[in-house]
Computed example of a mutant assay.
Amino acid sequence: MLPRVQNTLRFVAIAFNHYLRQPIYRTFLIGKMSQIEDSTDSDSETVAELRRCHIYEPSRNSVLRDRDIYLKKSLFEIAEEADWQISEVLTISDLPTWPEYAKALERTEEANNTSAANANTDLSKKIVLWQGDITMLNVDAIVNAANDSLLGGGGVDGAIHESAGPKLLSECETLNGCETGDAKITAAYLLPSQFVVHTVGPKCHSPDSVVSHHSEMLLTSCYRTCLDKVLEHNEFNKRSPDTASKDEERPGVSAKDDDSNASISKRLQRFEPPIRSIAFPCISTGIYGYPKEAAAEVALKTIREWLDEHPDELDAVIFCVFLDSDVRNYEKLLPVYFPLPDYPQSRSSEDET
């Protein structure tokens, strides 16, 4: 039985050699190769053939090493390597908060009167609406509206991969794709941000622009899962390597435990910076066809609910839009989900008049 399996695998390895960059084939062959190598009577020729094809699978150790290197680089070092200017990059301090934005549009009164009962000054100050290129934001994380392969595509996905450089693709190749509604975090490499949160939105090509409940739930999952992954990342990296090492120095452990602790300590030395600011594009509203206003409502509703549950986990959430129509949708819906209280600035300006 085993020789037949080996011959079949040899044929598969050769026939699909040029498809190995696709996660479905790569995962299948890597799993089968492990089974054959573990067998006592494995055919060395089959193993050699699979190993030859396996060269397309990037070494996870090298990917983790590159990730560590780039997360430790300064913005100036990244700019020099990526050949863009620091002056081209926007930081959080360069972007007006939602209360400042609304005041500039003279829409503060409208925002006040929409739903005053749900007004939360602290949360509203965390929200930013900005029209521009998400790849030039110096925030902790930007969200990529990816496809399920995570290997790049068109639109914002292609722009992020192009700007981040080939090492982003190398890390994505180790993730075995991503399910619709799920999210995965990578380093940002040559981007001015530190991390990229990849999420796969639903395809919604309805001729009458009616969104199914299933599609709405999947899009909701995209936004919530991105934020949950950020929370998970921050929880995992709360302890510094020094603190972790001290915690592990406890008496009464065996030599076997020492070896286990050494590996844990080594893993904990990959301490990564927390994510306190995140920028979202308009997920699924491009070629995936999700109606733009409906998508904006899902985004705002989901993020407002998540921030109500975790008010101290993020300092800024940026809605990064590209089209004028998206700007109008967010300007219309932001007062509904992030109504503004009556600010002292407004009263003081009235007193001056």
Rank of each mutant, 00 (worst) to 15 (best):
K203L: 10
W306Y: 08
S206E: 01
N234H: 06
K184S: 09
H233Y: 05
K256E: 15
I264Q: 07
D258F: 06
H213L: 09
P274S: 14
C222L: 10
S265A: 11
S209W: 01
T199C: 03
T302K: 05
P241T: 07
D258N: 12
S240N: 08
C178E: 11
K292N: 11
H198Y: 09
K229T: 13
K184Q: 11
P202R: 03
E309G: 05
R267I: 06
I278S: 02
A299M: 06
R267V: 06
V298C: 11
I303F: 05
H205M: 00
E309I: 11
Y290Q: 02
S254Q: 09
P281K: 08
G252R: 03
K184L: 09
S240K: 15
L218S: 03
I275K: 06
E248V: 05
S254V: 04
P273H: 06
T285K: 14
H198T: 01
S209I: 01
A279L: 10
A299E: 07
P281W: 10
T225N: 13
D208Y: 00
I278M: 08
P241W: 06
E179Q: 15
E179Y: 13
R304W: 03
P251L: 11
T225C: 10
I264S: 08
P273F: 11
P241V: 09
K266V: 09
I275Y: 13
V196M: 07
I287K: 14
E179I: 15
N234I: 12
V210E: 00
K229E: 15
L218Q: 08
T285P: 04
S206F: 00
G201V: 04
E216T: 09
N261K: 02
